[in-house]
Structure formats: C-alpha cells, structure tokens
Design a binder for these strands. Structure first.
Lengths: 216, 216, 216, 216
DNA sequence: AATGAATGAGCGTTCATTCAT
DNA sequence: CATGAATGAACGCTCATTCAT
C-alpha cells in the first residue's frame, strides 16, 4: 500500500512533467515548475528521479508498455500481414491522438536525443517496433508481399510517415484527425509492396482487409 | 570586397556552429566554443547573429537555398512525375549524405522547434518542399498517378521516410549509404500510387521508368 | 527560530550591500562582491532579492521604519510646532550621522531614481515625511506659524537643506558634525515662518523655545 | 571655420546626450543610441570625448558658464543683499525650468557623483555658487543680515531648497511652475536671517526688495 | 519519506572602447 | 576627420542538484 502511494506520486509527476514539457519545451521547463504543479517539493522529485533528464526518459516507459501490450494482443487476433500492418498503424495513430502530451514528448524531445538510446524507454519501444518488422517479414514469407522488398525500408516508411504526420499534427494542428490518415496511408503501402500474383489467392481464401474503425 | 569579407566570416561561423551543434548538441554548445573554433571573439558572433538561437536558425538558410535551386534546375530537365519524384528524393539523400552536419542540425534541432516555424530558413524549406506537392499533383493531373490519392499524404510519406532514414543514419550510422535507399523506396511509392490502367499507355508512348527493375 | 535565521541573513546581506554600495557605487559593485563579503553564495542573494536593484531598494525599508517609529514616539511627547520641527530635524541628522552607509545609499542612489518611486521603501519614507507637513500645518492652525506660508515649500526647505547638508557631508566630509547644524538651521526657519504677534503670547504662556540662544 | 564645424558637432552631441540621459538615465543610455540620434558614428563621439563619463561631465560646462555670467551681470545692477539673493534664486529656477534636460542631468547624475568633483564643470559651478556665499557675507557685513548666521548654512538652505524643488519637479512634475516658488521661498529666508534692528534703517534709506518678476 | 534552504557552475549577452583604413 | 568593424572584459542571473533536518 505504501509502495502504492509512491507509485501514484511518481505517476503524477510524470504526467505533469509530460504536460509541461509538451507545452513549453524540455529546456524551458524548470523542475520548480513541475514541483509546483504537482504540489510536491523540488527535492521530492529527486527522490523519484535522479535527474531532470531521467525524468524525461521515464515518461515513455509505462505508456509505451501499455501500447505494445495492446498491440501484441490485437495482432494475435488478426490474420494477414496487410491487415496486421493496418492495425498497427491505427493503434499508433489512435494512441498518439489520445495521448498528445506523450506524443509531443516522444516526437519533440526523445526521438532525436542520442542519450535516449541507452534507456529503458527506448528498449521498450525498440521491442515494440520489432512487431512491424516481424509482420513485414511474415508477409514476405507467406508471399503476401513481394520477395524483393527491404523490410527495414518498409518499416522506415511506416514509422517515418507516422512520425511526420504526428509531428506536423503537434506543431501545426493539421490534420485534425490523425486516424483518418491510416487507411489511405496503408492502402498505398500495401499497394506498393504486395505481390500481385498471390494477391488473388489471398482474396479467394476469404480474407478481408481490416479497416481502421474495426480494429478496436 | 569588404562586404565579401564579412560574408566569408559569417559563413565560417555558421559552418563551425553547425559542426559543433551536430557533435555536441545545441544546448551543450557554448558560444565561447564556437568563437574559439572560428577564431573570432564572442562579441563578434553577436555582430552577425542576434542570439545563439538566431545563429542556429541561420544555418539552413544558405544551404537549403542551394539545394532547392539545384532541385528546380533538375526538375525542368526531367519528364514524368515518377522520374521527378525519384530525382527529388535522390537530391535530398545526396544532400544530407554530403552535408552531414547540416543534416544533423536540421533533423535534431530544427525540425521539432516551434520557434523555427517563424523563420526565414523555414520559409525557404517550405517553398522548396512545395515542389514535391506540385510534382505529385501534376502526376495526378496527367493520369500518371491515381486520382484518389491524397497528395499531402504522399508528400508526408516521402518526407517522413527521408527524415526517418536520415535521422537513423545520423544517430546509429545505418545504413551507411543513404543513396542506396532511394530506388527501392521510390519504387514502392510509385508502385503504391501509380494508375495501372494508364501505365501501359505511358509505356507505349516510349517512356521508361527509371530503374524500377534494377533497384536491388 | 528558523525564520529568524533567514531574517538575520537577509539583514546581513542588506547591511553588507549598503556598505559596499556606499563605498564604491551601485553600478560599480558586483553581486559577487556582496556575496563574498557576506559569506553567502551569489545564488543565495537571489533567494532573498529578485534583482540587484531589488536589493538596493530593500535597503531603506527596515531602517526607515525604525526612524519614523521613533519619530512618531517623540512627537507625541513634544508640545509646540517649532519644538517638534526641531526634534524632527535633529532625529534626521542624528540618524544619518549614525548610519552613514544608509545615508549614502539614500542620498546617492535612491533619491534620484525614478524606479524607486514605486517601491515599498519609498512608500515608507513618504508616510514618514508626512509628519513634517502635519507639524507645519498644525503650527499654522494654532497660530504659531504665519497663515500665509506654503507648507509644501517649508517642508521642501527643511528636506532640501537636510539633503544638501548630508550629501555634502557624505561627499566632502564637511561639516564633520551634522547635528551641530540643527539649531542654527531651525532657528532660521522658525524665525522665517513664525507669527510675531502671537509669539509673545506663547512666551507669556510659559513655553520656551528649545535652545535658540545656545545654538552658536 | 573648420574649428567651428567641430564645435557645432560637439555641441550637438552634448545636447543629444543630455536629452537621452535625462529621458532614460545615464547607465541605461548607450553610446550607440547617442551616435544614432546625432547621426554620427560611435567612433566619432570618441573623437570629441574620451569616455562616456567624460561626455556626461562635459554637459554642464557651457551652459553653467552662461548662467553664471548672466548672474554676475545682474548682480552688479542690484543693491541690497536680500534683493541679490532673490535675483540669484530666480535666475536658478528660471534656468532649470527652461533647460529641463540640463536640470535632469545635473540633479540626477552629476550632483551625487564623487568623480564629478574633479571636473571642469564642477569647478565652474563651484565658482558660480561662491556668489551666493559672497552675497550672504556682504549682507552680514552691511548689517542687513544678522551677525550670528552661518553663511555656509544659509547657502546650503538656498541650494538645498532649490535642488529639492527642482528634483521633485523633474521626477513628479510638481509644482508645474518653479518660478512661482521663488518669492515665498526668499521671503522666508530673508525673514529668517535679517537683522530687525537695522531693517528699518534700510527701508528708510529708500531701498526696495526686488520681486522676482522684475529681475530680468 | 519529505522538504526548505543553499549553492556550484555556467552562460548568454552587453557595451564602452579601439583601430585600421 | 570619420567610421565600420571588432573585441575585451564583465556581470547579472538561472537552475539543476544536494543536504541537513
């Protein structure tokens, strides 16, 4: 129980920090500001996090875990690499759209920080992202995708596009609804990488592409 | 001539700054460091740039102009939207690969800075990027690309993928050669957005897609 | 107790600052100098005062309060406007003479600073100075002073003379003893503003002017 | 003639400087600001004045000379120490009121600067002020003023009151018209220091006090 | 576990001033 | 004589971090 209390506090600090970082920037945010808004002393924050940077790096840990757990769960239920990719992209977009502070922190402050690479948060994300590569490679193996595609490249296209759209959304507010981009985006990707010969076989086997709005 | 001397000095400062920012980070770099390496007094730096941030924001101005001028020049010589897109992506990749300090500064410090949005450098980049949208829209108009694609989305895919690949390259060193990614990447994009009905007509008209089949 | 410790520290900083400002000038004094002499870190000074100027403006607050409290106390015990004025001027001179650092700060750096006008310290002084006007006006009401004098002018004469004498004393060291100026000064003022008709009545009522004849 | 041109420029710089110092404060004013407003390069200012402080100290030289020359001239025409004092005070007040920038510089930045003491400007003022002492001492000698007054004190009263009134006028704008204060002020002073026994004799000798408005 | 108080360590920025031309 | 360009020399101020209680 007392353990619990600390956990709660830690979470509060992380949430407040994420919000303020997102609003004002990491460098521009002071520990004192975070402390004030969390109604905690500055010194207390250092009980939970070794440094300001450590606090920043802690932000993705829990949320990313949740996302990828959900992702793993869904992927088990879906058949077909294309459908799985669509589901993954949707989950990402939906996630960012519903946790905008987290999205900001990740896109604006973590993605480009070399020090973040040696971090628990980054490890979790890396593992989660492996799912994408796996799905692509599976798609190639089953013949759903062409043999000559480079899975690393395709994964980069998917992640890069998501990141670009989300970053633009954070910085300029457009497009208002990120989820609407999922289907047109995945359609192009699939169109670009599918193996047209085998395609028909898949369809004839009674598989249906999963639309974004069905995935939840 | 005397004007020239100042121009040279300004350029030197920008180059040194870009290099050090890229190596050590913006926040971590001190004006004194830049001054020392450029063999200029700190005060002189403030003759050329109002603030440290202003210096950062000045870095892309000249280089980006050069890139986009070159881009405009090439685009005039190329026929076919697909070929133009390939050329654009190649120019980008080639540019980043040959100016890695600039690439770092852009990807790590500018792309995510809201304050950069109100900047000459950003304006130049925005105008340059318009070329991509133009080419895509032209491709749609001529029937080379499908009518139902969203040009903003396709542009985001192209830029997002480039950014992702370049950022990874900067941060992890892989893939060693960015230019090698251009063809496989553009192949997937074209495959994903081309209009298959008209495709044959293009072929019959004697046009050749650039390298789709050589790309692996 | 712990509150006390901080109060003590604040007082120490103020005292040291006053001394150094008085010796070397405000602009010429550095925070680091004050910190070193108070055996406090520079950062600590900023815990107590927002800015260097804020520290300067804090100097008069406490001392001026003490002076004016003492002044109020004495004025209650004295009868006759002339006697009261003499007492006021004496208290001022005595105060400046015994707190020369404060006198310097007030005369050299505060009196002529427009920003000081919006300050607690200035408010306190303004209220304290009101006593002078009150005494003069009372003197007019009771008939001790002529009806046609302008109390604002008389107050200005009193303050101006004090300021001039104190400033000269600070800057040139003369006259060595400020208190000696009180009686000759007040004698002239009283001589200049008293109502001669009523004067005799006062005498006949058994009141004695303070020291007019001893003053040389 | 060419000498003349430089003189003109120097005067222009002094005037501009006085105005800006008066408006914004000495410390707050930059050489660059003065240079810009005078349409002269910063380096040129250093052709005329060794330092910024030197420029400040040069401001009173010419104007003060003019004032005191005028004063000397008038004093020769006036009989009676009281009348002379009135004339002096009027000239001061009139002078400050018509050259408010100069008044500001003198009252706010020079009067309290120890370094100003070793300056040509200060020497001129000191000599000018000697007139006041002279007049007072003459008044004592002729019996117009009491033998027991301290001329230094009386001079301090006169200067202190003027300074106080002018400083208040600069800083708060009241009283709007400084010259109106001259008569009531001098009346009190004279009343305070005159020798009543001899007074009648003077009057009977046909002397009239000079009113402020007659003095020009 | 929690915090009020203290500070070490920096850093960006400003200007008066100089000097080559 | 005039000045554009360059800089030396400071300094105020900020904050992440620590520690005694």
């Amino acid at each position: 129980m007392i353990q619990n209390k600390m956990e709660v506090r830690k979470k509060q600090i992380i949430e407040t920090a994420a919000k303020i970082f997102a609003e004002s920037g990491f460098k521009e945010t002071t520990i004192s500001e975070i402390a004030k808004k969390t109604k905690v002393s500055e010194a207390s924050i250092y009980e939970y996090f070794h440094t300001k940077e450590g606090l920043l790096f802690s932000i993705p840990v829990e949320l990313a875990s949740e996302l990828f757990e959900k992702m793993e769960f869904h992927l088990k239920l879906i058949r077909g690499a294309a459908n799985k990719l669509r589901s993954i992209v949707f989950l990402f977009m939906n996630f960012y759209q519903t946790t905008p502070d987290f999205a900001s922190v990740l896109m604006l402050f973590l993605k480009h920080d070399k020090k973040f690479l040696d971090t628990d948060g980054h490890r979790i994300i890396k593992i989660g992202i492996k799912h994408i590569t796996n799905v692509i490679e599976d798609g190639v193996k089953t013949g759903e995708f062409r043999k000559d595609i480079n899975p690393y490249l395709v994964r980069s296209m998917i992640l890069g596009t998501i990141e670009h759209l989300v970053t633009n959304w954070i910085m300029t507010g457009t497009p208002e609804n990120l989820e609407e981009m999922v289907d047109p985006f995945i359609d192009i990707i699939i169109e670009g990488i599918q193996d047209r010969e085998i395609e028909k076989k898949h369809w004839s086997m009674g598989m249906f592409p999963v639309k974004a709005e069905d995935s939840e």
